[in-house]
């Protein structure tokens, strides 16, 4: 598992993982923004599939869910967008969504379609490791990596989750929901070490990361940073004209020295 398309994205440099919501403000724009993110230096790109009740999200990404619904985004439309990007995008594409849309589609059919469309992995924030077997049977069957999250509250759970992790470990920086925080007060170094002890899979830190200074700090200890709300808020501000702004932001974020 440690030689997958996803884990390889962390191989030669510290990685920048970018999140946008598919269909925000439209699927045509999602296609354009994925290409802009890759050009600007993103190493892994997460595409959100909108859900009616995103309980792990703060206000910024909740609003992006609503915008995606306003543009009549469907799961099938998102699959087609991913498929159309397949020949053009080299970095791994992941989905991030909640369990119910996947369950309603049918696990087997959903992950088969993911594989067809060139999706490498999936993040499901309301599917903790303990409940993941029912899904993992199908992700494994179709070669999709199921990304596990570890939180500051995981403590004795850390070892079990880290040992079962695929692709990379999504390390939640701090308590609470997604969204920019002016300061992350958690001891990220200690948290990363507690995971590293149990796995050599790449570790990426997300929740609240928005500035180059934060990214540089995290890269000192972890293999990647994950940035979502900060990019989504650029799309909230500029809508269909956000491409150049996203590209500039990600260039600035990926500029700090990030050698191995």
């Amino acid at each position: 598992m440690n030689n997958s398309k996803i884990s390889n994205a962390f191989r030669d440099k510290k990685a920048f993982v970018a999140y946008i919501m598919a269909g925000d403000p439209s699927l045509e724009k999602t296609r354009e923004y994925v290409l802009a993110l890759e050009r600007a230096g993103a190493d892994v790109i997460e595409l959100g599939i909108p859900f009616s009740d995103p309980i792990a999200e703060g206000g910024t990404i909740q609003a992006a869910n609503l915008r995606a619904f306003q543009s009549n985004t469907t799961i099938e439309g998102i699959f087609e967008t991913a498929l159309s990007l397949r020949g053009e995008v080299r970095v791994p594409l992941l989905f991030m969504t909640y369990l119910n849309p996947v369950f309603a589609y049918g696990y087997d059919a959903f992950f088969a379609r993911c594989a067809e469309c060139g999706i490498s992995g999936i993040i499901i924030p309301d599917l903790p490791f303990d409940e993941s077997d029912e899904v993992r049977e199908f992700t494994t069957r179709h070669g999709i990596e199921l990304i596990s999250l570890i939180a500051p509250t995981s403590r004795e759970r850390t070892q079990r989750i880290a040992k079962g992790a695929e692709g990379f470990v999504y390390l939640v920086s701090s308590l609470g929901v997604t969204g920019a925080r002016s300061e992350i007060t958690t001891d990220i170094g200690a948290l990363v070490d507690s995971v590293r002890e149990h796995t050599d899979i790449p570790i990426a830190v997300g929740f609240g990361v928005h500035s180059p200074r934060q990214a540089a700090e995290i890269w000192k200890r972890a293999d990647g940073v994950i940035v979502g709300s900060a990019i989504v808020s650029i799309i909230a501000e500029h809508g269909a004209g956000a491409g150049e702004h996203i590209e500039k932001y990600v260039r600035d974020m990926t500029k700090p020295p990030r050698g191995i």
């Binding site: 309301d126 903790p128 303990d130 939180a151 509250t153």
Partner: peptide, 14 residues
């Protein structure tokens, strides 16, 4: 039933 919640809450449920 089950426990389909974000990882952050799993410790509190335990």
């Amino acid at each position: 039933g089950g426990q389909y919640v974000p990882e952050t809450l799993m410790g509190a449920l335990a």
